[in-house]
C-alpha cells in the first residue's frame, strides 16, 4: 500500500503539500522569520548598518550601549551593532558552505556505502580515517597548511563533518533498505537509481535535515573555536565567532562585547533549527501517509 501510494504521488502535489504543512506550523513561521531577517541583514548590510563596521576609534573603545552605539563599542571602538549586521554575511556563509561541503560528500558516501555492499568496507574505512582524526587538530592542521582565512576554515570545518553525514546516512540506509517497500520495489525491478533517489533518500531525509540544522550551528561554533585558537577570519572582517572570542578578554569589564554576538549566534541557530524541524515534520512520509 505504502509503496503504491508513494510511487503514485506526483512530484508537484507533494511539494505543494509540504508547503501547505509548513504554513500551518508556527515553528516554521518563527524560524523562517528569523532566517529571513538575518538574510535581509546579510544582503542589505551596507544600507542597514548605522556605521562603517570597520571604522575604529581606539580612544572610545569598550563603550557601553548608548543612544549613539545601540550595542556599545568593541575593543577597537567599532560599533558592535554594525559589526553584527555585517557578521551575518560571514556566519551564514561559514555555516552554509561548510555544511554543503560535508552534506554533499557525506551523504553521497553514506548512500553508496549503505546501498552497495561491495563499496561499504572501502568507503567506511576511508570515513573512519577522516572521522578518527581529532576534529580541532585536523582543522588546525589544515588551516596551518593552507594558510589562515575564512575559506580555508570553511573547507576545514566542512571536511571535518563529512564522515558524520556518511555514518548517519549509511545507518539509516541500512535500516530502510530492509523495509518491505524497498524490497518490494526491488522485486518489481525498479532501477537502483530510482530506488535510491525516490525511495531511500526521502525516507532518510529527516535525520539528515535534523543533522544539517544542528551542523550549521556546529559549523558556526567551530569557526568560533578556530578563532579562539587564533585561526579565524582575518581582521577587519566581522565574524561573530571572532567577535565572541575577542570579547572573552573583556567578559568581566565589558560583557556586551561578547554577549551580543553570542546572542546573534544563538538566534540564527534557533532559526535554522525551528525551520529544519518543521521541514522534517512536513517531509515525514509517515505523517504523509496518515493524510
Amino acid at each position: 500500500m505504502a509503496v503504491s501510494a508513494s510511487l503514485g504521488t506526483p512530484r508537484i502535489s507533494m511539494s505543494r503539500r509540504v508547503a501547505a504543512r509548513l504554513r500551518r506550523n508556527p515553528g516554521a513561521w518563527i524560524g523562517a522569520v528569523i532566517l529571513l531577517a538575518f538574510l535581509t541583514a546579510a544582503v542589505f548590510a551596507p544600507q542597514i548598518a548605522p556605521y562603517d563596521h570597520t571604522r575604529q576609534n581606539i580612544l572610545r573603545r569598550l563603550q557601553p550601549p548608548s543612544e549613539e552605539h545601540r550595542l556599545g563599542t568593541d575593543e577597537l571602538g567599532r560599533d558592535i551593532l554594525s559589526r553584527i549586521i555585517f557578521g551575518t554575511r560571514v556566519s551564514l556563509q561559514v555555516g552554509l558552505i561548510s555544511v554543503s561541503i560535508s552534506g554533499f560528500f557525506g551523504t553521497a558516501f553514506g548512500l553508496a556505502a549503505g546501498y552497495f555492499r561491495r563499496l561499504d568496507n572501502v568507503i567506511m574505512r576511508f570515513m573512519d580515517i577522516l572521522l578518527a582524526f581529532p576534529g580541532i587538530l585536523l582543522a588546525m592542521a589544515i588551516v596551518a597548511a593552507l594558510g589562515p582565512g575564512l575559506y580555508n576554515s570553511m573547507v576545514a570545518i566542512g571536511i571535518w563533518a563529512i564522515p558524520v553525514y556518511a555514518r548517519v546516512t549509511r545507518g539509516s540506509v541500512l535500516g530502510v533498505k530492509q523495509t518491505e517497500y524497498i524490497e518490494a520495489s526491488r522485486a518489481l525491478g525498479v532501477s537502483e537509481f530510482r530506488i535510491i533517489f525516490r525511495h531511500i533518500l526521502p525516507n532518510i531525509a529527516s535525520p539528515l535535515i535534523v543533522l544539517s540544522t544542528m551542523r550549521i550551528a556546529t559549523a558556526i561554533l567551530s569557526a568560533a573555536s578556530l578563532s579562539f585558537l587564533g585561526l579565524g577570519a582575518q581582521p577587519p572582517i566581522a565574524d561573530w565567532g571572532g567577535m565572541l572570542s575577542a570579547g572573552r578578554m573583556y567578559v568581566r569589564d565589558a560583557p556586551w562585547v561578547a554577549v551580543f554576538p553570542g546572542m546573534a549566534i544563538t538566534l540564527t541557530v534557533l532559526g535554522f533549527n525551528l525551520f529544519g524541524e518543521a521541514l522534517r515534520e512536513a517531509l515525514d512520509p509517515q505523517v504523509q501517509k496518515r493524510n
Binding site: T218, L221, F228, R248, V251, R252, I265, V269
Partner: peptide
C-alpha cells in the same frame, strides 16, 4: 537544548567558571 547547543564551549566554560 537549542540554547545549549548554540553556545560556544569556551564561552560556557568562562561563564561557568565565573
Amino acid at each position: 537544548s537549542l540554547i545549549f547547543v548554540s553556545m560556544p564551549g569556551f564561552w560556557v566554560a568562562l561563564l561557568l567558571m565565573l
